[in-house]
Simulated scan of single mutants.
Amino acid sequence: MKIIVIGASGTVGKAVAAELAQRHEIIAVGSKSGQFQADMSDIVQVRALFAQTGKVDAVVVAAGTLHFGPLSDFTPAQFQVGLNSKLMGQVNVALVAQQHLNDGGSITLTSGIVGDQPIRNGVGASMVNAAVEGFARGAAIELPRGLRINVVNATVLEESLDSYGPYFHGFEAAPASRVALAYSRSVEGAQTGQVYRVW
């Protein structure tokens, strides 16, 4: 298969690319690195990306920015960070990918554990992660040509504990290599409308 991995230079993206590259051709995409560059919050750039890559068999998104902070200080602009990037960025990819995936192809998006298990300062992430999953469930029943869409919902990564550990006391971390298996299951399996939790 020919697979686009958006966010391929990030911790999860690298692990996903390494897992899938054992069996498939990977097209690495980043906002500033990779074979191709695109800001997924800009649908014009997403369209240009797919115009360059041509037809593919799967698209994985392991990217998206969120703002963390206390609800009492949160502003609409700070909520908009996650809405523009992690939510609408992934929605943009899914909207454009429909026309560029081969029959039976798949889209795999990324949410996160705080959509189900909230943390302090994580209200923006909880909102966006839940919305990503809602979008995928709704899209799954409408995609044509046997196209599939799933979401990977992971806990905090072992590799990210130095940065994010203080937010996640009491949570069991997972290595990126284990999280990557859920993306493999989405891409190489047959299910659609699923949320694969790695907790």
Rank of each mutant, 00 (worst) to 15 (best):
T65L: 07
R148Q: 09
H67S: 10
T53A: 14
I6N: 07
M127Y: 06
E188W: 07
Q80W: 01
G165E: 14
K32Q: 15
F36D: 04
G82I: 02
N150C: 03
A154D: 06
I141P: 01
G13E: 07
G64S: 11
A130M: 12
L66A: 13
S41M: 10
V12M: 10
S31H: 06
K32P: 03
V81L: 10
T108E: 13
Q35K: 15
G10V: 12
E188F: 07
A125P: 09
T75Q: 09
G10C: 12
K14H: 04
D42V: 12
V128Q: 03
R178F: 06
L161A: 06
G170V: 03
K55F: 04
S186Y: 10
N92I: 09
V195E: 03
Q45F: 02
M127T: 13
I4H: 05
S184E: 13
Q22I: 12
Y167L: 13
G104E: 05
A62K: 09
Q35L: 15
I6E: 06
P118L: 05
S41W: 09
N150D: 05
G104H: 04
A94S: 14
S184H: 14
E25G: 05
L101K: 03
I27S: 07
V96N: 15
Q191E: 13
V5P: 11
Q98I: 14
E188M: 13
K32C: 12
A63S: 12
S186A: 15
A182N: 08
N92V: 10
G193Y: 00
R178S: 08
G54K: 06
A125N: 07
G189Y: 07
G34P: 08
L109E: 11
S33T: 08
A51I: 03
G146H: 04
G54F: 07
A139R: 01
K14F: 00
Q52K: 13
